[in-house]
Design a protein around this nucleic acid. Structure first.
Lengths: 207, 207
DNA sequence: GCAGGTCTAGAATATTGATTCTAGTATCTG
DNA sequence: CAGATACTAGAATCAATATTCTAGACCTGC
């Protein structure tokens, strides 16, 4: 009685992996359904069986990477003075850096595939909503941190934290090479850079 | 007798501008010939009159932006000890930051359009060569600087300088907002971050 | 072993987009 | 003002790509 599905030969995950691989290797312009099918070994029909459109597949790949990146952000530290907040910021930067080293493909995907590259009109509403809200948890986290660091939360302070705790760690990771010693050194350099920039650049200008 | 051309209504430059604008605004996936024609007001035929293919147009736009970015790098400073070299590095980082603020469209283009996104088989040999060699002057400049900073030149040291003197300034610029006070503050933060990272992260690990 | 379901598979179709073609137009020289 | 010369213009063509469709394969419970 129970409808029992055939075991799938090409999992959703494998197709997302293939899409990610093609985007990173060939560039987003050449991430066609045929190229992704080829990279995954699946026929195009199997891709459309699982994803409504190419844009939906790309959106899902982006969402998976973005979610993984967010999940790597550590929870807020305990203290509440500025020193604690700076340590907290440095911890976030370090965790973003570590994420990029542990998930280089996801990190590269987020660099290559920008939300702009996805045609939202060809994405199902559920995924479109998820995309629109994808960054909200991280932004809330950074907003809290901005208040602890600067005494208030503003667009400018949030941009500064996005720069120092996301963009800069990603940039460091993408140049850090493969050797463990080099990576450890980059991590230290990142920590120093973030602390130096925070002490100089913050708090943001008052209105 | 002298062949006198009709005055052109759509200059090469205007078409490059339009291509850049579409890439930055809509993403490289949607930078089609029709979209660029629409943005520039020119019909598609006029685009093909000046550019052999869409890839050639994109390549030319990338090349123009990359060349402008390189031209912004200041010549090497006079001194030869490490302090001078650090100042030199900071000056390069600052000039890259300034370039991004003065030419936001070119900076955004270089972020959105990666060499991967251009099909070299559809680009004329002259432009393909120019693309391949586009970064050579800057790499030579960074190589010299690496020698002054670290006593020797290696892939690792060059990557470190690319990170600190190109990637990081670009990241700072793209988040620095429009207010002059905010920009000045970001510039100071960048300077501090680069110096801090240099003192911690370099010289690169010995083999 | 067969019924009922999902899934695979790749050919067929339809759409989109790149490129080409043919006319027509503006400009300057003589 | 006639002729030569690029240039503009956009329709027509061609190629690539997304998407759909139809058959069939597999798995499991009965």
């Amino acid at each position: 009685m129970a409808p029992v599905p055939r075991r799938s030969a090409h999992s959703e995950r494998a197709l997302l992996d293939a899409a990610r691989h093609v985007v990173v290797r060939d560039g987003v312009r050449f991430a066609t359904v045929a190229a992704i099918a080829d990279a995954s070994g699946a026929p195009v029909g199997s891709i459309y069986h699982r994803f409504a459109s190419l844009d939906e597949l790309l959106a899902r790949a982006w969402l998976r990477a973005a979610s993984a990146s967010q999940a790597a952000i550590p929870p807020a530290g305990p203290g509440s003075d500025r020193t604690d907040a700076v340590d907290d910021a440095a911890a976030i930067a370090g965790s973003m850096y570590d994420f990029c080293l542990e998930h280089p493909d996801d990190a590269a995907l987020l660099r290559s595939l920008r939300p702009n590259d996805i045609d939202m009109t060809r994405v199902s509403p559920a995924i479109a909503d998820a995309l629109a809200a994808a960054n909200d948890p991280a932004l809330a986290r950074l907003g809290d941190l901005a208040r602890r660091l600067f005494g208030r939360r503003s667009d400018a302070s949030q941009d500064l934290l996005l720069l120092l705790l996301v963009d800069v760690p990603y940039a460091f990771a993408l140049r850090s090479g493969r050797q463990a010693t080099s990576r450890a050194r980059y991590r230290d350099g990142l920590d120093a850079a973030v602390r130096a920039a925070l002490s100089v650049a913050g708090p943001p200008a008052r209105r």
